[in-house]
Amino acid sequence: MSGTSRTRTITVGTRGSALALAQTRLVVARLKEEWPETEFRIQTIQTHGDRNRESLDVAARGDKGLWVGEIERALAESRIDIAVHSLKDLPTEQPEGLEIASIPKRVDPRDVLIGKEGFKSLASLPKGARVGTSSARRRAFLKAYRPDLDVRDLRGNVDTRLAAVGTDTYDAVILAAAGLIRLDLRHRIDEFVDPAVLLPAPGQGALALETRSDDDLAVELAYAVHDRDTDDRTTAEREFLAGLGAGCVAPVGALANLKGGSLVLEGWVGSLDGGRVIRATIEGDAEEAADLGAQLAEDMLAQGGRELVEAAKV
């Protein structure tokens, strides 16, 4: 460790939600294990999406910057040294001067179902069951799989959505497994939804540590918790998303898995109502993760994905 790292306090920036703080504390604990002589402190930053709940409607149409813009500005202005993001919230292109320095080991990327008594699995939900989600992806997947379900909009933090279960409005909700796991709420999960039914969002379950490109110390510190396998998997998924040009507007799912030295990437794009879906898989060398993601996107656009993406933007 350099002498500079012993004297400089590293400020780690994050949103102030319970989940954002929980996952940032986990990251800082790992950083301290690798750099015990370095002092880290956490600084919360309120984003536009946090301040203006009405902007959630804009977020649903694909403006991921609502959750990261102020944090990246603080990073660029050297008010923080490392930013911790949920990778699925981070745009596929970084602002000039910033870079993703590290992607720690991923938590379970699947979606999960939490239901009231008697509503404990997606397949067994009765006809007309009221399922809450804020995601266009989940809504489209659910309508494709079970068009008989009453899929309803549900926004808010994890606690708000869990509290909705069993009310007069929702029989069950769909959330990301990773958030519940990081909040020590795994016991609330009734079913891990099979990716064959519901592919996760690209990058779901992974975190990203963003730094200034010219801050050698912060880059070195962050890279100590980097996980190569997670990087390969999420690179393929995010390149697939970027290649579609969909942002988070169109219902898009992707999941990459490693088998030996090979990477298998499955992608899905659908219409907003779930009436039409395109699903495809590509396999190749894990070292070519970015190219595999781009190639799968190109293939799916040629199969009709372009029309689905453009329709979702209207």
Rank of each mutant, 00 (worst) to 15 (best):
S102Y: 00
S102W: 00
I103S: 03
P104C: 06
K105A: 11
R106L: 09
V107M: 13
V107E: 13
P109T: 03
P109W: 00
R110D: 05
D111S: 14
D111N: 15
D111H: 15
V112R: 03
V112Q: 01
I114P: 01
K116G: 10
K116W: 08
E117Y: 12
G118C: 06
G118Y: 04
F119K: 11
F119A: 09
F119D: 06
K120C: 14
S121I: 08
A123P: 09
A123Y: 11
L125Y: 00
L125T: 01
P126K: 07
P126T: 05
A129L: 04
V131F: 06
G132D: 05
T133N: 09
T133K: 07
T133G: 07
S135F: 03
S135K: 05
S135P: 02
A136E: 13
A136R: 14
R137E: 12
R138N: 12
F141A: 15
F141Y: 15
F141N: 15
L142V: 01
L142G: 02
K143V: 05
K143R: 13
A144M: 02
Y145D: 11
Y145N: 12
R146S: 03
R146P: 02
P147E: 04
P147L: 02
D148G: 13
D148R: 11
D148C: 12
L149A: 01
L149S: 00
D150K: 09
V151Q: 03
V151I: 06
V151G: 01
R152H: 04
R152C: 04
D153G: 15
L154H: 02
N157F: 11
N157C: 11
N157Y: 12
V158A: 10
D159Q: 14
D159S: 13
R161C: 03
L162Y: 07
A163W: 09
A164R: 01
V165M: 02
G166A: 03
D168G: 14
Y170Q: 12
Y170P: 06
Y170I: 08
D171C: 09
D171F: 07
D171K: 09
A172C: 07
V173F: 10
I174L: 10
L175C: 00
A176M: 10
A176R: 08
A177C: 12
A177T: 07
A178H: 09
L180C: 03
R182C: 07
R182N: 10
R182T: 08
L183Y: 06
D184E: 11
R186Q: 15
R186K: 14
H187M: 13
H187G: 13
H187A: 14
H187K: 14
R188G: 07
R188T: 09
R188D: 11
